[in-house]
Design a protein around this nucleic acid. Structure first.
Lengths: 335, 335
DNA sequence: TTGAAAGCGATACCAG
DNA sequence: CTGGTATCGCTTTCAA
């Protein structure tokens, strides 16, 4: 193994000089800098991460806590994860992956054993039990999602309340007076998942203010669950004319089922999804949608964590404004 | 921060004794062991990972390299990742996540800077460029997938050749003489992804030996791509009576499309999938399938890596035997 | 069965 | 602008 001493010897300087060349924490003459870099390249030197962490109290690692749940949208989670890794690497950091089943204990472990400098937590609940723990730990932390009481923690998320509102406005503007939200699985609501509740409240409030009749259903992501939802919404005196779907897993089944019932989109019924743009694009009927910016959220989470590591960053709740793109699955009500 | 010295002082022993209590590398009297454990609990001591790594040359971290590709099946990747983390934790290890875009350089980096003790690589290609690098690195490594030349590296995967064979046998046994494989995206074949080619060859060889007419198509995972495939397979003098689908993303669309063409499954056409059991189960028609044991593979990959770390484990290529479960989407040919 | 102390390979302070 | 060196917290030999 090549050590900093080897490099120093080869370059004819002291180890500390090599260290400073690498860290840039003090000025180095151009000539020595060159010599040092040359020796580093020559020898293929890489600083030992453990030694560096021990001496500097910095691991250059961020911990990322991912949910294990299968009722979440997996591709979205994966997009988020890869975006996080990519962004972390661009800040010269690595990512340590934790699963949520380790709970608060896992957070303790990572911090107490100095495995990571900062923590990013996905799948935040409204009454998030990890919030107090994260506060105690006093490490840079970023939550994806907004708990009811974020205290001094930094959070990033899509502005789901605004997204819910935008969806209603979009349909109301097209003349719809009877719409419905097909939301995530009941389990998601039951555990108080942050985004689900916020979307719902934006949806409800705006429906009220626009005078639109709006139903809201949780939908088990299976064919049977979907059929139950649709039965309730369509087999009645005034069937809904617009659907807002906040449940990625059933977009495909929904479109088949509508086709099976001879309902044309958007002529007979409008469909507006909340999902990543590429998913909306790839459906049998390209769907109008509010984009779920998983990649941008991952990027931003890391960036905010880095800012905290670089010193003074005020805790903040950063909500990305929703972007609604019409792709032809939503249209005016046909009388 | 609580250090080993603090614990030693509290327990009235030397630091080395604490270390040995923790590692179990020499015998300790029951009384001191108890005292030490008590102090550890009392003080909430956690060994510093960096210091430990520096002193022991062991990080207790395994690196996991995941693909960034979107043409792969994302839920399967995610299942694999979480299984890996879970199993690693049960061996007292953590997981450092790398993306494949760092390439061979990323592997070098992780090893040279002592960030991980072992490496697990997903999405292996037939002519895997990382194989020579992994050999040079001389660290425990496990490939998920089998390259053409694994040399001395350990590999785990489903036995896709056998899986391809089993699929043909299953349909042939039911009397099908005209079948087709709807495979992954052309891009997957083009880059020589290990599993795709192996499945195909098992499929072809068995079709030949059973005297079954067998087409094989790569399918772009979109509605248009799927329609193209189906057009070719169904609009001909002898339409296929059985489909083997090795492309998870189009299972849903396929079933809708068949319904649209008034083909009943399995009466008019049999459908046999290669995908995780839960995915097969969740389709509009529960699908007969060969299970893709992502969780078991993740678990096994870690186990084999740990074995290598524990000393002498011969390199091996471990192929899990396929398990075909009939769920009613495959049936006898109706004359 | 236990202790003392020499490293492990960096960083960063104190000097010059 | 550069060097010397104490230090980080733990493991592991060497000794008892």
């Amino acid at each position: 193994m090549v050590t900093i001493a080897d490099v120093a010897r080869a370059a004819g300087v002291s180890p500390s000089t090599v260290s400073y060349v690498l860290s840039g924490k003090r000025s180095i003459s151009e000539t020595t800098r060159r010599r040092v870099h040359h020796s580093i390249a020559q020898l293929g030197y890489r600083p030992n991460a453990g030694a560096r962490a021990l001496a500097s109290n910095r691991t250059n690692v961020v911990a990322l806590v991912v949910p294990l749940r299968t009722d979440l949208n997996v591709p979205v989670v994966m997009q988020f994860v890869t975006a996080t890794v990519t962004e972390a690497r661009s800040h010269d950091h690595d990512v340590l992956l934790l699963t949520a089943d380790e709970g608060a204990e896992g957070l303790h472990r990572v911090v107490a054993s100095s495995l990571a400098d900062a923590i990013i937590v996905m799948d935040v609940e409204a009454a998030e039990p990890r919030v107090p723990v994260l506060r105690e730990l006093a490490r840079p932390a970023v939550l994806i999602g907004v708990p009811d009481h974020p205290y001094e923690l930094t959070c990033v998320d899509l502005d789901f309340t605004a997204a819910g509102a935008d969806c209603v406005h979009h349909l109301a503007d097209l003349g719809h007076r009877d719409i419905a939200l097909i939301g995530p699985s009941p389990a998601v609501y039951q555990r108080g998942t942050s985004y689900a509740g916020r979307f719902l409240s934006g949806f409800r409030a705006t429906a009220a203010s626009r005078g639109v009749e709006a139903d809201a259903l949780a939908c088990v992501p299976t064919y049977d669950g979907l059929r139950d939802c649709l039965d309730g919404l369509l087999d009645r005196r005034t069937p809904v004319t617009g659907l807002v779907v906040h449940n990625e897993a059933i977009l495909g089944p929904l479109l088949s089922e509508l086709a099976k019932r001879d309902l044309r989109v958007p002529r007979d019924i409008s469909v507006l999804a909340v999902c990543p743009a590429d998913v909306a694009q790839a459906q049998a009927v390209p769907l109008s949608s509010v984009d779920l910016p998983a990649v941008e959220l991952g990027r931003l989470a890391v960036e905010l964590a880095m800012r905290q590591l670089d010193g003074h960053a005020e805790p903040e709740v950063r909500l990305l404004p929703p972007r609604l793109t019409a792709r032809g699955s939503t249209g005016p009500v046909v009388a």
